[in-house]
């Protein structure tokens, strides 16, 4: 079953062509990694899927059960890293899409925030200030927030940027676990091709257009994958 279907998506970024005729499907419960170089349109594609950017051509079809319930983990801004907010405040804000015009969070939403914090092992940080955390802890907080918004699908935009190898590995393991044990569909944007080969079910290589989509084993056999296979990896 396809959760998300992208058909012939084309987007211009200012004057350059960011995405050209991009088509692919995301299957329920899979871990799909979108790889590619800087400026390949990875983040743009993520925003198209989320509906933040409307493509000039083509369409995104999202399963009705999933619509509006995609948990997004955006790239961190520098302003965010030293933002004075408690961990609980940040995680709870993941429920914002479901509150409508009600000015407070429901008991169920608060329970969900706490549940996600426990699942990711950050319940003890609840009252800590977000800015006092390490990079890896901050990503866990943002992942817990994304899980508050997500029922079925997680979309992670370079979640391991700036993390050390050990923390990176932990994060990948956690994401894989969410996929296997909780039935989450995961779409991850990443630079780290070696990690993508190791942890994801399928790889989409983007360079404005789709250059490759398939399993890591298939990817390794292509010239694209082979050129990256020899590179050093964090994981």
């Amino acid at each position: 079953m396809n959760v998300i279907s992208c058909k012939n998506i084309t987007v211009h970024n200012e004057r350059t062509l960011a995405l050209t005729d991009v088509s692919f499907d995301v299957k329920k419960g899979e871990f799909l990694t979108i790889v590619g170089e800087n400026g390949a349109g990875k983040s743009t594609l993520a925003r198209v899927i989320l509906g933040i950017i409307t493509p000039e051509e083509g369409s995104v079809t999202i399963d009705t059960a999933v619509r509006g319930k995609i948990g997004y983990l955006p790239q961190q801004s520098s302003a965010q890293r030293d933002f004075p907010a408690s961990v609980y405040e940040v995680v709870l804000s993941g429920n914002i899409g479901a509150t409508g015009l009600i000015p407070f969070y429901s008991r169920a939403q608060k329970a969900r925030a706490r549940g996600n914090m426990e699942m990711l092992g950050i319940a003890n940080l609840s009252k800590k200030s977000y800015r006092a955390l390490s990079g890896g802890q901050q990503q866990r907080v943002l992942l817990a927030r994304a899980l508050c918004a997500a029922d079925e699908v997680l979309l992670l935009d370079e979640p391991t940027a700036g993390l050390d190898p050990l923390v990176t590995k932990e994060l990948y393991t956690t994401v894989r676990h969410l996929c296997d044990e909780h039935g989450m569909t995961v779409i991850m944007v990443s630079h780290d091709i070696a990690a993508a080969m190791k942890y994801s079910d399928r790889i989409l290589h983007l360079a404005s257009s789709v250059r490759f989509i398939g399993t890591p084993a298939e990817y390794e056999k292509t010239p694209l994958g082979a050129s990256f296979g020899t590179e050093d990896s964090n994981v």
Partner: peptide
């Protein structure tokens, strides 16, 4: 206050949540 926090802390996330 919740929406103001969400938008101030993370605009892309707030956008993705439909704020």
């Amino acid at each position: 206050k919740n929406r103001i926090f969400a938008v101030t802390f993370d605009m892309p996330f707030a956008k993705s949540a439909g704020v």
